[in-house]
Simulated scan of single mutants.
Amino acid sequence: MTEGRVAVFAPSPQLTVTVEELDGVPDIHVHAGGQGVWQSRMIDSLGAQAVLCCALGGETGQVLRHLIGVGVEAREVAARNGAYVHDRRQGHRDEVVRMPADALSRHELDDLYELTLVAALRADVTVLSGPAEDDVPVPHSVYERLTRDLGAQGGRVVVDLSGERLERALAGGPEVVKISHEEMVADGLAESDGLPDLAAGCRKVASFGARAVVVSRAAAETLALVEDELWLVESPDLTAVDSRGGGDSMTAGLAVALAQGESLEDALKLGAAAGAVNVTRHGLGSGSGDAVRELAGRVRLKSWEDGGCEH
């Protein structure tokens, strides 16, 4: 098994501050966050090399550079990175304040695009991730351009997006699309979250050229369309501590397996195991590679159209 190199496009990581309670007193945690950061952490845990392609600016960007913890290709910008403060002392997340990311200037955007293109062409697989839905540090059209340009050079692109970002990326023709069932319904790709409607949505997404469409369904079995065959992905039943980040870890597992030369079916198993391990932990995008690979052997693929035949 080769190590594998995965480029992760995350245009504007977030600075996250979370207040917990330890022995009756506040316990403050400061981390780098955002979808791409969490994916990159899991990619590194699984033994591949993550390269996070991003812009860093303002006081938040200065702090983030010291917190990201994985390989980084960054463009220094004037635009500030976003940040949030969450209070979790009552056992659930209460958002105290959130600062959105600034939009990049035209020259900053050009430099970030070029930086990402070079890093992605040197990688085995590229993951395109997005900031929060109401943060628009880069135009949505960037996702279409990256997907198309990388695909034209033989690059393998995995997208974990929703809304207009996903719509634009699909126009570029990605190889793998990861989406949640809620996002699929909200984006009008499926009429409901019932399996027949989600399956029809998978086929609609695949019509743009994707070889695999993976639909996470919270605690229910993941639905996947792989080269026109529908599978239900049954993960080991583990007690969840924090469900946030499970989908991002699944995307990381998919990308690592492909970067290491595994089949799409084996990529589904590693992705499902990574998501299962992540939700047992308080840290997003966390979990050991040993635990994930042990659980990957316990993931089962069942043909949905053949009455639950296992693979």
Rank of each mutant, 00 (worst) to 15 (best):
L295G: 02
D197T: 11
V215N: 01
D306A: 15
D248Q: 07
L198V: 00
R203W: 13
L223D: 00
R300Q: 13
V241W: 09
A252R: 06
G201K: 11
P236H: 06
E229Q: 14
L223Q: 01
E191R: 12
D197S: 13
S243W: 13
R298K: 12
V233I: 08
V233H: 03
D306G: 01
G287D: 14
S216Q: 11
L270F: 04
L198I: 03
S180L: 02
R211C: 10
A224W: 01
A273K: 06
S207W: 12
E221A: 15
A259Q: 11
D266C: 04
E294M: 13
L258C: 04
A252L: 07
E221T: 11
S288F: 04
V233T: 06
A220Q: 15
K269G: 08
G188N: 07
L258D: 10
V233Q: 08
R211A: 15
L238Y: 07
A255H: 01
D187P: 01
E227G: 02
A186W: 02
S286L: 11
V213K: 08
M250A: 07
T280E: 11
K269N: 07
G194E: 15
E234N: 01
L223I: 11
L258M: 12
S286A: 14
R211T: 13
L195H: 05
R244D: 12
V213A: 03
A219R: 13
L225M: 04
A276D: 14
G245E: 10
E182W: 01
L189W: 15
V241S: 04
R300D: 07
T251L: 09
R211S: 14
L195M: 06
V292S: 08
D306E: 15
R203N: 02
G247H: 05
V177S: 03
R298H: 12
A274P: 10
A190F: 09
A190M: 09
D237R: 13
A274T: 04
A240N: 05
M184N: 08
S216H: 06
D237C: 06
F208Y: 15
G246N: 02
M250H: 10
A219H: 13
V177Q: 08
L232H: 05
G297N: 12
G271S: 03
A296M: 05
V292G: 08
P236N: 07
D193W: 04
V205Y: 10
E294W: 08
L189C: 04
E262H: 14
K204M: 11
A257S: 12
G261V: 11
V177F: 06
D193I: 02
E182D: 13
V256C: 05
E265T: 10
A255Q: 02
D290W: 00
A218T: 01
G209V: 02
N278D: 14
E305T: 13
A272H: 08
R298A: 09
V279P: 09
A206Q: 09
A276V: 00
A291W: 10
E182P: 00
P236M: 02
L225D: 03
K269H: 09
G297M: 02
A272K: 08
E234I: 00
C202H: 09
V213P: 00
E294A: 14
I179H: 03
T239E: 15
W231L: 10
T280N: 13
A291C: 08
A218Q: 11
T251C: 15
L301T: 02
S180T: 12
L189E: 10
L284E: 14
L189Q: 11
I179E: 00
D306Q: 15
